[in-house]
C-alpha cells in the first residue's frame, strides 16, 4: 500500500511498442480488461484487444503482462475511503493496471476470501479490504495479492521471487515459516487452540537462526494488549 504507483508511459506509446498477441491489461473508466493485444489504429483512434475495439482516448492505462492470460473483463474497482486517505486514488488507473504482485496470504482459502471481503471503515465511509489488497481470483482481471491454501502449499513451493511479504495465517501455514524467504513474513497464531506446537516451532526457529528485533523500536509497532508478538530477523 505504501509503495509508489507504477509510472506507465502514455497509452498511445505503449500500444505502438507492442507486438501482436502480447498479453496486456487495460483500464478504462468502467472496466479492467486482460486480453491479447491485436493492434492499434491511430487514424480511427481504436485499440484492438482480442478482436474487440476500444476507443483509444478512453483507455486510461495499458501495460503488457508477463504471463499468458485468459480473456477477462471486470467492472472497475473504485478507490474507497482508505485508499483515498493513503493518497492512492490519484494514480488509480496505473495502480489497477500494473499492481505490484509482491504480497501473499497463506491459510485456509475459503476463510481468506471471506476475510478480504470485510470492510474497513473510517467515519461513516467504508471500503472492502479486497479493493486495497486486490486478491487473486479466477474472475479477477487485475490482482496484487496471491492467496495460497496452506493445505496444498507443498505443491506451490518455492514461492515466486517477486514476493516481498507473506502472511502465514494459522497453525498449518505457520509450519512453513522456515521455507519462506521473502523480506517480511508475518505468522499469525491462535492462542485459543490447545495445540501449542506451532508456537514452539517458531520459538525453536528463532533460537536456532534468529537475531533479535524489537517491534517497538525497530518496526515502531507496539502490540495491542493481549497480543504476544515475537520479532526477529534471519540472514538469508
Amino acid at each position: 500500500m505504501a509503495s509508489p504507483a507504477p509510472v506507465l508511459p502514455p497509452v498511445r506509446d505503449v500500444a505502438l511498442s507492442l507486438s501482436v498477441d502480447t498479453p496486456v491489461r487495460a483500464v478504462t473508466q468502467s472496466t479492467v480488461i486482460t486480453e491479447n493485444f491485436r493492434g492499434v489504429d491511430l487514424d480511427r483512434g481504436r485499440l484492438n484487444l482480442g478482436g474487440y475495439e476500444w476507443i483509444l482516448d478512453k483507455v486510461d492505462a495499458l501495460t503488457p503482462i508477463p504471463h499468458p492470460t485468459t480473456a477477462l473483463r471486470q467492472p472497475i474497482i473504485r478507490p474507497g475511503v482508505i485508499c483515498q486517505m493513503a493518497g492512492m486514488s490519484s494514480d488509480w488507473a496505473a495502480r489497477l493496471c500494473s499492481p505490484p504482485e509482491d504480497f501473499a496470504l497463506i491459510g485456509t482459502l475459503s476463510w481468506l476470501r471471506e476475510n478480504t471481503n470485510v470492510f474497513l471503515a473510517r467515519g461513516s465511509e467504508r471500503e472492502p479490504i479486497s479493493s486495497i489488497l486486490l486478491p487473486t481470483h479466477p474472475d479477477a482481471a487485475t490482482w496484487s495479492t496471491r492467496l495460497y491454501s496452506a493445505l496444498k502449499l507443498d505443491d506451490d513451493l518455492p514461492l515466486p521471487e517477486s514476493l516481498q511479504g507473506v502472511v502465514l495465517d494459522g497453525t498449518t501455514a505457520a509450519q512453513y515459516l522456515a521455507a519462506i524467504e521473502t523480506k517480511v513474513v508475518i505468522a499469525i497464531l491462535d492462542r485459543s487452540i490447545a495445540d501449542q506446537t506451532a508456537g514452539e516451532n517458531v520459538v525453536q526457529y528463532y533460537n536456532s537462526r534468529g537475531n533479535p528485533l524489537s517491534l517497538k523500536h525497530d518496526v515502531r509497532w507496539t502490540p495491542t494488549p493481549g497480543i504476544e508478538a515475537l520479532g526477529f530477523w534471519i540472514p538469508l
Partner: peptide, 12 residues
C-alpha cells in the same frame, strides 16, 4: 504460558 510468552513483546 503460551509458547511465545517468555520471548515475546507483550508476553502474557
Amino acid at each position: 504460558s503460551s509458547a511465545l510468552a517468555s520471548h515475546a513483546e507483550g508476553g502474557i
